[in-house]
């Protein structure tokens, strides 16, 4: 290494120069790509919600969303109204699906009232109530959408994750796991919330028993599975009051 690169002043200049170059490069990229990225995320949310209620292009074994080009129209077609539940009141809001669940959760932690979005969809004469849920997996965040009927019986579910292990925790977004939730009950016979547990030793691998409040776990993905159970319990429990008002 030549003497020039060893001197302190050169080091300083280089360091500052590098910081400026890298900083501006990334900032430029991040801001110019931001509209594309936000749009992609927005369409993805719509696709996820539609998936949960059964509007998708699934083939025999893969989960396939409606394509990005038609997602917006399909969303407008099938989702009849979007509600935001705050405490005892609920209002309609076309942008409810853009509510940041992560922010609302931290709001609630700090003592504020959490905004709970709920999407009401209709397909083939059936009404679906779809709620977003969010929680922690083994490595990072996990989230999803659960579609229910008026008795809080699951009609469909979609899960996703930020960084779970491929082949293990990442399998929560595979059909074999998500399909297991169809038909599972969340409330017991007297209307109390029981949630659904992702359980090992379930003894029901084909998941034919729908009122056991359990779903078969994924081998090697215990903690991710526990995260799914936890987020179903903590987030869907908050909607019980709304479903009670439906009955009245």
């Amino acid at each position: 290494m030549s003497k020039k690169t060893d001197s302190n002043s050169y080091t300083m200049i280089f360091a500052i120069g590098m910081v400026l170059v890298v900083g501006s490069l990334l900032a430029f990229l991040a801001s110019s790509l931001k509209p594309n990225i936000s749009e992609n995320k927005r369409i993805e949310k719509q696709q996820n919600i539609l998936y949960a209620m059964g509007v998708n292009e699934n083939d025999e074994s893969n989960a396939i969303f409606v394509s990005t080009s038609v997602a917006e129209q399909e969303f407008k077609k099938y989702i009849k109204k979007q509600l935001v539940i705050e405490g005892d009141n609920f209002t309609e809001d076309e942008k409810a699906y853009m509510i940041d669940v992560k922010k609302e959760k931290s709001k609630a932690k700090n003592g504020g009232t959490r905004k709970l979005p709920l999407f009401v969809g209709e397909k083939d004469g059936k009404t679906f109530y779809i709620a977003p849920i969010r929680g922690k997996g083994l490595w990072d965040a996990i989230w999803g959408y659960v579609a229910m009927d008026e008795n809080m019986i699951v009609q469909g579910a979609y899960f996703d994750h930020k960084g779970e292990t491929p082949g293990l925790g990442a399998n929560i977004k595979y059909r074999f796991f998500m399909d297991d939730f169809k038909g599972e009950h969340l409330l017991d016979a007297s209307g109390n919330f029981k949630g659904i547990r992702v359980a090992k030793g379930n003894n029901d691998p084909k998941n034919e028993e729908k009122t056991d409040y359990e779903v078969d776990a994924i081998a090697g993905a215990t903690i991710t599975g526990d995260g799914v159970s936890a987020m179903i319990k903590s987030d869907l429990k908050l909607y019980v009051n709304y479903f009670k008002t439906l009955k009245q």
């Binding site: 690169t5 050169y10 080091t11 280089f14 360091a15 590098m18 890298v22 990229l29």
Partner: peptide
């Protein structure tokens, strides 16, 4: 030939991180 020897580890790391972030951002957008 222009990396100062005192901070070469940091520089290497920043190069890798920047490359990876660029790839990640571009993929996210397109």
């Amino acid at each position: 030939n222009i990396i100062p020897s005192k901070i070469r580890i940091i520089v290497q790391l920043i190069v890798v991180a920047t490359l990876v972030i660029i790839v990640d951002l571009v993929l996210k957008a397109f």
